[in-house]
């Protein structure tokens, strides 16, 4: 088994290469992702999802992130999906008015060409959704995301929702993720060195083995959190009131251009899906 989680778990990782996508305004990227996700849900089949796939490929190319690295991150997702998709295929029910000739049928289970297509289409949708969010994370730093979110959710302050504090909490929580992963790797290595085999045994046995790792992990995390509170206080943090920001966000020509292309493609996907149902 690999003891380098950070190598195989690519989700949420920021990849520091310079590309146009990296330089786009975080708010634009978040809007674009929301739009792509929404429109993906409006598609009805492989024809209508085609424009979305074009977007996905375009983003992949322009980010300059090696395709191999992106694909590696999808292994876990694919494995999970390969477990669920057969169910969807076997339980496929044709929409009213459609004639289906199944290859095989038993009770409510059946295997048909339409069922297989529907299963593959679902798989494509899930991958596209995952890919879009993944690309946002690959190309946008946490601080950009949280700054963007802070501005976009600004109106919620009127409803007395403490937007700044929530965003700060999120930022700090996310700061801990790489630290905790490193810590987890360190603890698992130490346990492995003491003879524990994390790659052997059944589910229950494996779960039991994980407990001794989690205890020191939590104890260390709590200690760290306590020190961090003191550190934030010492640096004069006192909530969002009266706080100013070094960073500005400005939407420029290329942001509008990028968003327009994506809007155009995504809405055409939604239109085709709604109108023709394919």
């Amino acid at each position: 088994m690999s003891l380098e989680f950070s190598r195989t778990v690519t989700f949420g990782q920021y990849i520091n290469v310079d590309s146009v996508v990296h330089r786009l305004d975080a708010r634009i990227k978040m809007l674009a992702v929301a739009c792509v996700m929404f429109c993906t849900f409006m598609t009805r089949g492989f024809v209508s999802i085609l424009p979305i796939l074009v977007i996905a490929v375009m983003i992949q190319i322009t980010t300059k992130i090696p395709i191999g690295y992106t694909v590696r991150g999808y292994r876990l997702l694919l494995r999970t999906m390969l477990f669920f998709i057969p169910f969807q295929i076997l339980f496929y029910r044709a929409p009213a008015g459609m004639v289906v000739e199944p290859y095989w049928q038993w009770w409510i289970l059946s295997l048909s060409w339409q069922g297989i297509i529907a299963g593959l289409y679902t798989l494509t949708r899930v991958i596209v959704l995952y890919h879009t969010i993944n690309m946002l994370m690959f190309t946008t730093t946490m601080i950009d995301l949280s700054d963007g979110a802070e501005i976009m959710f600004e109106p919620l302050k009127k409803l007395r929702i403490p937007v700044n504090e929530l965003v700060m909490t999120m930022t700090v929580a996310l700061k801990f993720v790489p630290l905790l992963i490193t810590e987890l790797e360190r603890l698992i290595r130490a346990q492995t060195a003491r003879g524990v085999r994390f790659d052997q045994g059944g589910v229950i046995e494996r779960t039991k083995k994980i407990v001794p790792v989690l205890i020191p992990l939590f104890v260390n995390a709590l200690n760290r959190a306590e020190v961090l509170i003191v550190a934030m206080n010492a640096r004069c943090y006192h909530g969002g009131d009266g706080r100013t920001k070094l960073r500005t966000m400005q939407i420029i020509g290329r942001d509008i251009f990028a968003l327009s292309i994506i809007l155009l493609l995504a809405s055409s996907a939604a239109y085709i899906g709604r109108t023709y149902g394919v």
């Binding site: 730093t141 601080i143 930022t171 700061k175 760290r224 020190v227």
Partner: peptide
């Protein structure tokens, strides 16, 4: 323990 943001400048 005391670094809060993700990037140096921030």
């Amino acid at each position: 323990d005391q670094l809060i943001a993700n990037r140096v400048i921030d």
